[in-house]
Amino acid sequence: MKKFRIASLACTAAVFGAGIGAAPPTAADHMTHVVRPGESIQAAVDAAESGDTVLLTAGTFHESVKVTTPGLTLRGMGRLTVVRPAPAKAPTTPKAAKAPITCAGDGNGICVIGTKDRHVANVTIASMTVTGFTRAGVFAMGTDRLTVRNVRAVQNGVWGIAQQRSVRGVIRDNVARDNGDAGVFLANSIKTEQGASDTRGTLVARNHLEGNRIGVTVRRLRNLTVDGNHITGNCAGVFVVGDENKPKTGALTVSGNRIVANNRSCPANSRLEALQGSGIVVTGAEDTLVTRNVVRDNAGTSSLSGGIVLFKSFVGTANERNRISGNTLAGNSPADLVDTEAAGANTFDGNSCRASKPAGLC
């Protein structure tokens, strides 16, 4: 591992002026830590300070990485940089009681971890492939303004990119393909039953999500946007999920997405029935706007199949005051629009479609 300091005239001026006063920190004081295959990414991350960049060269790295330093950028060289799990090691001591998240120990690739009391802020993960991990390719918890961009999260056991207990995140221009559950998974808390939390404007935008169980899952969250994504070849495109906890999931927007032929067949699990042919599913949510999406050719026989489906949650929580407006739908089965709720609980207007259940929603 080598360090390279960014050179600039500002740096020279700071040194020249050292005798008359310390110069304030600038971008020129930040370091770029270059890591090559065979060297430790974690060592570079641990040595870096806020504002530094850890740059991974082309090649394959076999390790998991945990980031806890605010303001850090971990960046590769696009598809040429690949992060995979380290080879499994035989245990040498009895397994201890569960410790805090270790990233590798929990089966994740790259982790950005804050705490309940103090979020880790302004971290960027960019331009690499993360593949083959048993849980998530990229996992974040307790973050503020995390950016994940130009990452390929491929063939991970559960999620491609996952985030919980976090605010103001930006997940954009990524590819999440062939992951065991959601390509992008957002939740207030993965394990704790509690009311929906305010993400303060998290954005999921311009991602390509294909071959996953679900393209995007939003669970027990409020105040976020899922916009401009291309979602195809999953068992379901987008799930907005709420339950009996308060406040309810909602006050969010699903807009401008292209959601086509999500017709893989996925078996039931502990939380959901078997899935196939679901475009956008809203369940147990309120005040959600679903608008300007193109939803085509999603077909299946599940009770959740169809183009845009409003369905009472599996614990009986109704959808309320959601608006389905200005979407273009075609070729979805059993219908382009499906509303299983009481008449008038939600609003359908200005959609272009041919068939709905019940009739009259188009």
Rank of each mutant, 00 (worst) to 15 (best):
M1N: 09
K2S: 15
K2A: 11
F4A: 14
R5I: 15
F16E: 10
A18K: 13
I20E: 12
I20R: 14
A23N: 10
P24R: 12
V34H: 11
Q42F: 02
A44V: 04
D46V: 07
A47E: 12
V54R: 07
V54E: 09
L55N: 08
G59Q: 11
T68R: 06
T69P: 02
T73K: 12
L74S: 05
M77E: 15
M77H: 14
R79T: 11
A86L: 06
A86T: 01
A88P: 13
A97L: 14
P100V: 01
C103T: 02
I113D: 02
A126N: 07
R135P: 00
G137A: 04
F139E: 11
M141A: 11
G142I: 00
D144Q: 06
R149P: 00
N150P: 00
V154N: 09
Q155C: 11
G157D: 03
A162Q: 08
V170F: 01
D178A: 14
D178H: 14
N179K: 07
G183K: 05
L186C: 05
L186Y: 00
N188H: 05
N188L: 04
N188C: 07
S189N: 14
S189Y: 01
I190Q: 08
T192Y: 02
Q194V: 13
Q194D: 13
G195H: 02
A196I: 01
S197L: 04
D198T: 02
T199H: 01
L203P: 04
L203R: 13
N223C: 02
T225W: 03
G228K: 01
G228N: 06
N234C: 09
E244N: 12
T253C: 06
V254M: 09
N263W: 05
N263L: 10
L275S: 08
I280T: 10
V282W: 06
D287W: 07
V290L: 15
T291E: 14
G300V: 05
G306D: 08
V309Y: 01
F311A: 12
A318L: 10
R323D: 11
L329F: 05
G331F: 01
G344D: 08
N346G: 08
C362T: 11
C362E: 09
